[in-house]
Simulated assay, not measured.
Amino acid sequence: MNQSIPQKIVIVEDEPKIAQILIDYLENHGYQTEYFVSGEGVLHYLENNVVGCVLLDVMLPNAEQFGDGLQLCKEIRQFSQVPIILITARIEEIDRILGLELGADDYICKPFSPREVVARVKALLRRSQLQANPAEKQESNTQKKWYLDEGRYQLKYQQQTITLTAVEFEIMRTLSHSPGNIFSRSQLIERIYHDHRIVSDRTVDSHIKKLRQKLNVAFGDMEWIQSVYGVGYKFVMDL
């Protein structure tokens, strides 16, 4: 592993047995861990330390005082783009969509295999590894005066910069590399997730909705990504 990349994993989980299993598996794979039993102190820690990923349980004790996992996810996104994996016993899709719209990069449902959690963490860290090496390749288009900065997961246009999540970046890169081409949701899932997991179409829609919101807030109400009814999405922005 590249030692220049932050390899500390923050675990926020109220069940000690589950937390210990995660700690053991992650540390056996060479990661450091920091454990919180509730939301207390999590934001302060993340504001003052560099970490690789956050494993965040949705249901946490003392939620009225310190917030549940969804609230914490939202607050973390106010100051950090650290990869976040939600861990939830709620199997209803609305909870998953809500978590993703609040800025989570991934989710995993209880009961889970700790090996799968480690695999998800590794996948997110692989997507984030170029952040530690900004000299790496940039996806550029100098004639149109915009580019995707793969080293920082940023899109730069009109002297403005927005930071994207790993999934949002992959969506933007996939669509913009083939402007006008229509990508189905299943094609986007194949490009975004490399571990062949089962992901619903609504999850893709949720990521694209969030991506559109970021683009519109930063650059105005311009149509970057167009929906093609019954088919999928295409990149249509004439930059």
Rank of each mutant, 00 (worst) to 15 (best):
G52Y: 12
M172S: 07
Y153K: 11
P111I: 08
R126M: 12
F235Q: 00
D105Y: 04
G69K: 01
D105E: 13
A123E: 09
F112A: 06
R202T: 05
Y157W: 15
N141T: 00
Y107V: 12
D106G: 07
D201E: 08
V118L: 04
E139L: 10
I84L: 05
E170V: 10
L125G: 06
L125Q: 10
G99L: 07
Y147W: 03
Y31G: 11
E190Q: 11
Q71D: 00
T174A: 13
Y35C: 09
E34H: 15
Y157L: 15
G220F: 02
I9K: 06
K110E: 08
D14S: 08
E15L: 11
V204I: 15
D68Q: 04
E75A: 13
L155G: 03
A123K: 01
F169Q: 13
D106W: 07
R126F: 10
Q226H: 14
E170Y: 03
V50K: 11
E34K: 15
Q160F: 03
R197H: 07
A132D: 05
C53Q: 00
F183L: 01
Y25C: 07
A132T: 13
I192R: 06
D106V: 06
T174S: 13
V42S: 02
Q3K: 03
D24M: 11
Y233V: 00
A123I: 00
L215S: 12
Q143S: 13
D57V: 03
V118D: 01
A63W: 05
F169A: 09
L98A: 07
R173T: 04
V54C: 04
V236S: 06
M222S: 14
R185D: 02
V204N: 00
I94E: 10
S140P: 00
V167I: 12
V37M: 15
S206F: 02
Y229V: 11
V217I: 12
D24L: 13
M222W: 13
T142A: 13
P111N: 10
M59F: 03
H196M: 06
Q187P: 01
H196Q: 09
Y45D: 05
S200Q: 11
G52K: 09
K8R: 15
F219A: 01
D195H: 10
I91K: 14
C109N: 15
E150S: 10
L175D: 05
Q143T: 12
Q32R: 14
N133Y: 15
I208C: 14
I84W: 03
M172R: 05
R152F: 14
G232I: 01
W224P: 04
L125R: 07
Q3D: 12
A166E: 10
I94A: 11
L211D: 02
V37K: 14
N48M: 10
R77D: 08
V12N: 01
H44N: 08
T161R: 01
Q20C: 13
I76G: 07
S227G: 07
I18P: 01
F112L: 06
Q187F: 02
F169M: 12
K144S: 04
P83Y: 07
Q65V: 14
C109E: 15
